[in-house]
């Protein structure tokens, strides 16, 4: 496929027009989601207590789990990491089809964003794990598959830094991206495939109240907008750096 016929991702194209609205939407939605999580959605109940008390208009006979509030951002950042990996895989496949370095650049930036959100998922999850389960780590199926995903994404960057030749580097990186993306549905479905007593299956009928679903939805949309803005900002920076490098090489060649 010739490069002339390819429509390459570039700075100033239509996605850049969405950056400002996405930034505003990200800030508003994540703030509204945060406020809803603490002031609108009722706390979920934990262990039953010996007795019941009227709180508001509701008879409560369980411990209130404030720690569950972590979930309202934990799940959205995990979803964003999966979607970033999905886009990374799309660009990786396009790189393998065309061998155009621009797609490798896009894929690398998607993987950077994915790694950022994977780390955020781990951080928020660890806080929950430490308080609710009393440990910093558990070899529970969801945690283990997600750790594998994080290690694959870290391996992606280690691999990139160890290969100098651009086409070989891009090819290896694309294959690792596809492998990482294969782990995404496994991570997502593992709580259904291997029912775990500790990691809840949230996305199912009756798994969340409508208020919880709305709050998670808003936070997820907000985080997706934030992820998109970060991607475009990084893409613009990388393209600018690449243009500077190309200009330097041209000047050096002329000088020689």
């Amino acid at each position: 496929m010739s490069d002339k016929k390819l429509k390459l991702p570039e700075v100033g194209q239509w996605p850049d027009k969405l950056v400002a609205p996405a930034l505003i939407a990200g800030a508003v939605l994540s703030t509204v989601g945060f406020l809803m999580a603490f002031f609108y959605v009722a706390p979920v109940g934990g262990a039953t207590v010996n007795g019941a008390e009227l709180i508001g208009d509701v008879m409560v006979s369980q411990k209130m789990l404030l720690s569950q509030k972590i979930f309202y951002f934990h799940m959205p950042v995990a979803i964003t990491s999966f979607i970033a990996l999905g886009f990374g895989c799309y660009y990786a496949v396009r790189f393998l089809m065309t061998k155009n370095q621009r797609f490798d650049t896009c894929s690398r930036i998607c993987l950077e964003i994915a790694l950022l959100f994977v780390a955020l998922t781990m951080i928020t999850g660890e806080m929950w794990t430490r308080f609710e389960w009393g440990v910093w780590w558990s070899w529970e199926p969801r945690l283990t598959t997600y750790l594998i995903l994080m290690l694959i994404v870290i391996a992606y960057f280690v691999l990139r830094s160890s290969v100098d030749e651009p086409e070989r580097r891009g090819t290896f990186a694309a294959v690792v991206t596809i492998i990482a993306t294969i782990d995404v549905p496994i991570c997502f479905m593992i709580t259904r495939l291997i029912p775990s007593s500790i990691h809840p299956v949230v996305l199912r009928e009756g798994g969340m109240s409508p208020e919880m679903g709305l709050c998670v939805g808003l936070c997820a949309l907000g985080m997706l907008c934030v992820g998109f803005v970060l991607y475009r900002a990084r893409f613009n920076q990388v393209r600018l750096t690449q243009r500077v490098e190309a200009l330097k090489e041209t000047l050096d060649d002329e000088r020689a």
Binding site: S67, K69, I70, F73, H74, V77, L120, M127, W128, R130
Partner: peptide, 9 residues
């Protein structure tokens, strides 16, 4: 833990 989770994020 909740404050740490949100702050670190």
């Amino acid at each position: 833990y909740i404050i740490a989770a949100y702050a670190l994020l």
